[in-house]
Simulated scan of single mutants.
Amino acid sequence: MPAVDVSGEFETIAKLLAPLAHPEWGRGLVDDVAVVPSRPGFDLVLTKDALVEGVHFLPEDPLDTVAQKLLRVNLSDLASKGVEPFGYLLACHWSQRCGWPERQAFAEGLARDQKEFGIHLLGGDTVVTPGPASFSVTLMGWAKAGRVVARNGARPGDAVFVTGQIGDGFLGLKAAQGALTLALERIEALIDHYRRPMPQTAFAEVVRDMATASLDVSDGLIADIGHIAEASGVGIELDMERTPVSLAGQAWLETRVDRQAAFEQLATGGDDYEIAFTAPAADEAALRREAERRHIRLTRVGQVVAGAGVRVRFEGRPVELARAGWTHG
């Protein structure tokens, strides 16, 4: 049963969600629609992701962090396309455990990230379900007309880059499940990354201006780079030992006997929400300057070649992978 009685959909909307609405376009969430004016010279870009309890987050995860992760995985999609976000539609499927305090926590998480990323709620729906809780967001943003960076623009001779660090999503899930033995501060950092990944929104304009192909890393670095290769009709050579890892990831690597297998787990685990992209190799110095200005780590992990698919190497030797990354049912 819920922790407290919840009067219903309208009280949840009026007391928790209406304060998050866009001051003009959201109509205070008292109408059935949101009205977004056109913006001359720009394309309206939309993305949608869902989180399901027991699949994308753990039943014991605090709902404020679930709300933040929900927004951030969508923000990551738009950032990887060079898009500026402005608002979102929200669907909440509250489970029986989602009483008023849990709903309040969820709304507080949304409020924190709305402020951090400059976005507003435009509308949506809330229902109660007898099954596990689930939430989805349709996030909207503006891109200069014709300037959205797709997956299909990679060309032989381009270099392959990734922002941030890879593997903390995989390790963070294990840490949250109590399956890692590391120093407490490392465990806490990994759990925080798993629950609240940080989208690279500050890098969006660099992607827009300099990338030839781009996407965010959600299924795993190798799998997602494979998506670029497939869409672009090219081959990509990936040097797995270049996979950038965090201090916590490095601490975990030091406990592994089989270093190659450990890197493979990090590069295929998914849930990282960094940006993987291709760009002309000649632009590497300029890209690094832009990353440094934004205090973003940038790593060159491979190169685009003629051919098809991803060819993975580890310290110069070809690697046959059991799997490239996460696959959705």
Rank of each mutant, 00 (worst) to 15 (best):
A223D: 07
R196W: 05
H227W: 03
R186Q: 14
S214N: 05
M198P: 07
A176F: 08
A223N: 12
D192P: 02
I166T: 08
F170I: 00
I187Y: 03
D219V: 02
A183V: 04
G172R: 00
V207F: 06
I166Y: 06
V160I: 10
R208T: 10
Q165S: 15
R208V: 07
L190H: 08
I225E: 06
G169C: 10
V217N: 06
I225A: 15
I222S: 09
I187D: 07
L190F: 11
I187P: 08
G164N: 05
I222F: 09
A211H: 02
S218K: 01
L221Y: 11
A223H: 13
L221K: 01
T212R: 06
G178Q: 03
Q165V: 15
A189V: 01
H193V: 08
L184G: 12
I222T: 10
D224A: 09
D216A: 08
I222D: 08
E205Q: 11
V217I: 11
M198V: 13
P199T: 10
E205H: 12
D219P: 10
E185R: 04
L221A: 14
L190P: 12
P199N: 05
H193P: 12
L182T: 09
F170C: 09
V207I: 15
P199Q: 02
E188Y: 08
F161V: 01
A202L: 09
P197V: 01
K174M: 14
V160L: 13
T212N: 13
A211R: 00
L182I: 04
L215K: 06
M210P: 01
